[in-house]
Simulated assay, not measured.
Amino acid sequence: MQLDVRGPRFAATVTTVVLIAILLTGSGWLAAAQAVVFLAGAISARTMLYGVLYRKLVAPRLAKATEFEPSEPVRFAQGVGFVFAAVAAAGFLSGVPVVGFVAAAFALIAAFLNAAFGFCLGCEMYLLLRRAFGPRTA
């Protein structure tokens, strides 16, 4: 599946805002909700919540997409985001907020790089792993 490149940047922008809110409030429940959003995106490009918002509300108001990217690196990045958001939620909810703050801060850095500069750390990790270990075979 190919994605409009503007969709993941929109999602990263929303994610950046959510992660800032998590860091400002120390909310483990908000971190858990973001983890669920990431998990849905890791499972399928069609279930990326912020991607759905982009496709339904934003994309119809923009010019037709001219650049596309494969969904696999983006889905991998969503999986990485899930790990960080889940660790943040666990840290906040278990009474170890320093773990929550550190994990959320790392996720925020990655989301901000994508939102502001179009540089997806998780996607780059995917490509490096793909080069190192080759394509998956069934």
Rank of each mutant, 00 (worst) to 15 (best):
A21G: 15
I22V: 14
L23G: 13
L24E: 12
G26T: 06
G26Q: 08
G26D: 07
S27K: 11
S27Q: 06
G28W: 03
G28M: 04
G28R: 05
W29I: 07
W29P: 01
L30R: 01
A31D: 07
A32T: 01
A33T: 09
A33N: 11
A33F: 10
Q34Y: 00
Q34V: 07
Q34F: 08
Q34H: 08
A35Y: 08
A35F: 09
A35W: 11
V36M: 13
V36T: 11
V36R: 11
V36S: 08
V37F: 13
V37N: 06
V37K: 08
V37L: 07
F38G: 00
L39M: 10
L39V: 04
L39E: 06
A40Y: 15
G41K: 10
A42Y: 13
A42V: 07
A42E: 13
I43L: 14
S44M: 11
S44P: 00
S44Q: 05
T47P: 02
T47M: 07
T47R: 15
M48R: 15
M48W: 15
L49R: 06
L49P: 12
Y50E: 03
Y50D: 03
G51S: 11
V52H: 02
V52A: 03
V52S: 04
L53F: 02
L53A: 00
R55W: 11
R55A: 05
R55G: 02
R55V: 11
K56M: 08
V58I: 14
V58Y: 03
A59N: 13
A59K: 15
R61G: 00
L62Q: 05
L62F: 02
A63F: 04
K64P: 13
A65G: 04
T66W: 04
T66A: 09
T66H: 08
E67W: 10
F68N: 02
E69M: 15
E69D: 03
P70N: 12
S71A: 12
S71Q: 10
S71F: 08
E72T: 13
P73N: 04
V74Y: 12
V74T: 14
V74R: 08
R75P: 00
F76P: 10
F76V: 09
A77E: 05
A77S: 12
A77R: 15
Q78F: 00
Q78C: 06
G79I: 10
G79D: 13
G79M: 10
V80T: 05
G81D: 13
V83S: 02
F84C: 04
F84I: 03
A86F: 09
V87P: 07
A89I: 05
A89N: 03
A90T: 01
G91R: 06
F92I: 07
L93K: 03
L93W: 02
S94I: 13
S94F: 06
G95D: 00
G95V: 03
G95R: 02
G95H: 01
V96G: 00
P97T: 10
P97E: 09
P97G: 04
P97N: 07
G100A: 00
G100E: 00
G100K: 01
F101N: 12
F101P: 02
F101A: 13
V102I: 14
A103C: 09
A105Q: 15
